[in-house]
């Protein structure tokens, strides 16, 4: 591989819009574009093409259907609740992991990523087993009259699991970079510990926590594998939107499936855009 002979200057793309002296732009950029188009853009375009077959009226009619409405409401509602839970506990976990030293800390830190690594189907059947009437947790909750498995609560539980790492991992680097002088400054100014925490330490975390919250929410809206086993999948009650997409597909109602998918996608992209705007705003101000 030792090729130190003088070779002629590498050919660069003629376009002056591209700057950079290293070779390989044409190949790298070309491959990137081809692959991106083939794997991502073309399939998503097919979605738009199919959705256009639905028309405005068809779209409205689809969304007016009680079953579709219920599924979308459940997916968005459960994702919202789960993301809120994760926002609170995510900040707590990030706080404890970055600021305190306790036995097993690095183990706990590593474990936070488990939901990213564990296949969703595995999470799904395990949560279902845990919360079933004869499961470890279901058995404890049943006498209290709380049903998690095969109920909407089950959807939320699955989404809390899936979304847990998002807030922790967005907030953690911020807390780790926190300058100790800042809380010392608050203390010298006479602020109580509570005032220091709530007025000085937590507010700068809000944008990051919001980003993590949004990521968890977006993930929750589209989540499928971990939910279908625990939810019970009763149409209109515990049937989530992604499941309805699958069902419509199995019924060869491609247009209906596409319509629901478009709603989910539109919301996801809007959220993505909101996150970018938020980060831009934060960077500019702070």
């Amino acid at each position: 591989m030792t090729d130190l002979t003088m070779s002629p200057a590498p050919a660069r793309p003629a376009r002056s819009l591209v700057t950079g002296v290293l070779p390989g732009f044409g190949l790298a950029f070309g491959w990137t574009l081809v692959w991106l188009s083939f794997i991502v853009l073309l399939p998503l375009a097919a979605l738009a093409w199919k959705a256009s077959g639905l028309g405005i009226d068809g779209f409205v009619a689809l969304l007016a259907s009680p079953r579709v409405r219920a599924a979308l409401e459940l997916s968005f509602g459960a994702a919202l609740i789960a993301a809120l839970i994760n926002a609170v506990f995510g900040v707590l976990v990030a706080w404890v992991l970055t600021r305190y030293r306790f036995p097993g800390r690095s183990l706990v830190d590593a474990a936070v990523d488990l939901p990213f690594a564990l296949p969703t189907a595995v999470a799904g059947i395990t949560l279902a087993a845990l919360f079933a009437r004869n499961g470890w947790l279901g058995g404890l909750l049943a006498p209290l009259g709380i049903e998690v498995a095969y109920s909407r609560a089950g959807v939320v539980v699955a989404l809390v699991f899936v979304g847990l790492p998002f807030v922790v991992r967005t907030v953690q680097p911020l807390l780790a970079d926190f300058d100790r002088e800042v809380e010392e400054a608050a203390a010298t100014l006479g602020a109580s510990r509570a005032a220091t925490v709530f007025r000085v330490l937590l507010p700068p975390l809000v944008p990051a926590a919001l980003t993590g919250f949004t990521l968890a929410f977006a993930r929750g809206v589209g989540e499928y594998g971990s939910i279908v086993f625990i939810a019970g999948n009763m149409p209109g009650v515990t049937e989530i939107a992604p499941l309805l997409v699958v069902i419509k597909l199995e019924e060869f109602d491609y247009v209906g499936a596409t319509g629901i998918a478009v709603v989910m996608l539109a919301v996801s992209f809007a959220l993505l855009f909101a996150i970018n705007a938020l980060q831009h705003w934060t960077e500019k101000r702070w």
Binding site: P43, E223, V245, M264
Partner: peptide, 14 residues
Amino acid sequence: SVSPVVSGLVFVLL
């Protein structure tokens, strides 16, 4: 940011 189900769907549509 695409739901896994939708990721499958787009290929079915194609």
